[in-house]
Design a protein around this nucleic acid. Structure first.
Lengths: 101, 101
DNA sequence: CGTGTAAGGAATTCTGACACG
DNA sequence: CGTGTAAGGAATTCTGACACG
């Protein structure tokens, strides 16, 4: 469908293993796995091996900043779901008012 | 320097291991390593482990197409260096004529 | 020339647990 | 709660070589 059938979106393609993610983010593998346990990141799996996207890496860096400020994983999670709700609501609005101004 | 200090260029960051590259391109690991031997791709190394970028993946897909058409690795290499020469020449021209129209 | 494969070793990743606090 | 670490195992990757052609 797109002009570049291949490009898709490099940012969202889950291809990076945890060792590289650790280097890119400065977080330990333990931390990265723990944040997954707390449902803050959602890597894909290939035979048990986690694969992350650049978007995941960005997300993890945001989490690292929040954590440094003392924000708990639970609070970060709340913030995430809240933002998700807002975005979904906005989507509903768009669907409703589209082409009706 | 950029607005998004992090984003840099996902396309050029060497973070993908050969197994994933193999899946993305449909090439065998053997083929991918051989094309490196023939100087058609240049992965980074981390403790001996090859790391590729999305740009490398694109390059490999182009190579795969050429190969299917019967183009030899040597010919592909010639084409690459030729294109490189042209791009460098263009760079020289730009440097020379910049702000002189 | 281009690619498959078996071989042995090194580096990576995984999970569940114990530790500290 | 959040993170470190040692433990044992599974999956990945690496190189050099032999094979075929």
């Amino acid at each position: 469908m797109t002009a570049h059938p291949q490009e898709d979106h490099y940012k969202y393609k889950k291809v990076i293993s945890i060792g590289v993610v650790s280097e890119l983010t400065g977080l330990s593998q333990r931390q990265i796995r723990y944040y997954e346990e707390r449902k803050l990141v959602f890597p894909d799996r290939s035979k048990g091996i986690r694969k992350y996207s650049f978007a995941d890496v960005e997300q993890l860096m945001k989490i690292a900043n929040q954590r440094e400020e003392g924000v708990s994983t639970w609070e970060i999670r709340q913030e995430m779901t809240k933002e998700l709700r807002e975005r979904m609501l906005k989507g509903q609005m768009n669907a409703h008012f589209r082409r009706r101004s």
